[in-house]
Each structure stands twice: as C-alpha cells, then as structure tokens.
C-alpha cells in the first residue's frame, strides 16, 4: 500500500493576509511546492494549499488559506479569518505603503480571529535588499510592540519561508500543550486525530445509529 494518507495527527488552519502584491501567494507556493512562481496572477478571493510538516515529532497538516490582497475582496476574505490558528501577515520590504497598512490588517486579524491565534509578521522580498524601503529594525520594533513574531523572508530564494511556517506551527503546538487551545472542533482551527485504536463498543454505535435513522 502507498504511504498512509492519514498519517498526521493534527490539522492547523492558517490564513495569509496583507496588501496586494506583497507575495502572499508566492510564499504559499514556495512553501508547498518549494518553487518560486514568477508572474503570479492576482489571487481571486481565496485559494488554499496544504502541506504536512513535522513539529516535535508530530505530523501536522497545515491547511493554508491564501487571501486576495485587493481591497475589493476584503468583504470576502474577512470571512476566512474565522477559526484560523495561525495568521501570516505579510508586507513588502520594498514598498513602505504595504508596511503602513499593517495596523489595519492587524486590527482585522485581532478582531476576526481567536485570542490564541498566532500572528506572524513577515517582511517579504528580502532578496531585494537594494530597494529596501522598510528597515528590519523598524519592523522588529513594530512586531515587539504588538506581540508578533517577525521574520524577513524571500519567496524568490526561499529564505526563511520554511522557518516562518514552521515556527508558527511550533507556537500553535505549544498552545495545545499548554492547554490554551481546545482541540477537535473544526472551529478552533486545530484538530487532533487520535491514533486509530479499536474500541470494543464501536460495533454497537453504528448499529444504534442505523436503528435511529
């Protein structure tokens, strides 16, 4: 038989937000396909990708919702924050305007997600250092003031992309270990899949269901 498709123990839901053209879809593509997607078209609404990662010896399936940055999609994309366990908030280090809009994105993220949602600030396009418009120090300060984790990444070279996604997963996993995140409800953004152990009375349950149906 092929590799068991169910061999992961958690599902974490992520959302990627940020202005148009900061490279959200490219980050996702780099993370899921390990490739840089040049000439990436504007995202229409939302798209999603998945990848199974390993954190603390646990296989975790990341279900990542990549939202459109265009303003006109805000009404639609805001509905996707619901139940996200991780939010990657992306700006473009070569365009200050995308950095300036962070507070608006952060407000959305705080208002529309759970208090436990891990919000990760990403300064993308670190390969374009020559055109840098936002210093690392400045963003670090912003992250610190707002209690965010921060990394500069490059979807083009792949630098720090893994780290950003994995660190988010580690933090979420930590919250689970602490007990601050409740599991097994689709709405909490994290789901735990118990290892398949046969339970004796399992036979009875379906039979009961059958009768009642």
């Amino acid at each position: 038989m092929a590799a068991n498709p169910y061999n992961y123990s958690y599902i974490f839901k992520y959302i990627i937000i940020g202005d148009m053209g900061v490279g959200k879809s490219c980050l996702l593509h780099q993370f899921t396909e390990k490739k840089f997607m040049a000439d990436c078209p504007h995202t229409i609404g939302v798209e999603f990708g998945t990848r199974i990662v390993e954190v603390s010896d646990q296989k975790i399936k990341l279900q990542i919702w990549d939202t459109a940055g265009q303003e006109r999609f805000r009404a639609v994309t805001r509905s996707y924050y619901r139940g996200a366990a991780g939010a990657l908030m992306v700006y473009d280090i070569t365009r200050r305007s995308t950095y300036n809009h962070l507070s608006s994105w952060l407000t959305d993220a705080r208002n529309l997600t759970n208090p436990n949602t891990v919000i990760f600030l990403i300064g993308n396009k670190s390969d374009l250092d020559a055109q840098r418009d936002v210093t690392r120090e400045e963003a670090e300060l912003f992250a610190e003031e707002n209690g965010l984790i921060f990394l500069e990444t490059s979807a083009r070279t792949g630098e720090n992309v893994e780290e950003a996604f994995l660190e988010t997963a580690r933090r979420i996993y930590q919250s689970i270990q602490d007990g601050s995140l409740e599991l097994n409800a689709a709405e909490s953004g994290v789901q735990h899949k118990p290892s398949p152990i046969k339970v004796g009375n399992e036979e009875g349950q379906p039979a009961d269901r059958n009768c009642s149906c």
Partner: peptide, 13 residues
C-alpha cells in the same frame, strides 16, 4: 463509513 462521525474522522487504513 458509519464510524466516520467526527468532524475530522479517522478512516481505517
């Protein structure tokens, strides 16, 4: 199939 009643169920291998 009747066992697959949780939100994210665990289907047998």
């Amino acid at each position: 199939c009747r066992r697959l009643t949780s939100d994210i169920p665990e289907p047998s291998a």
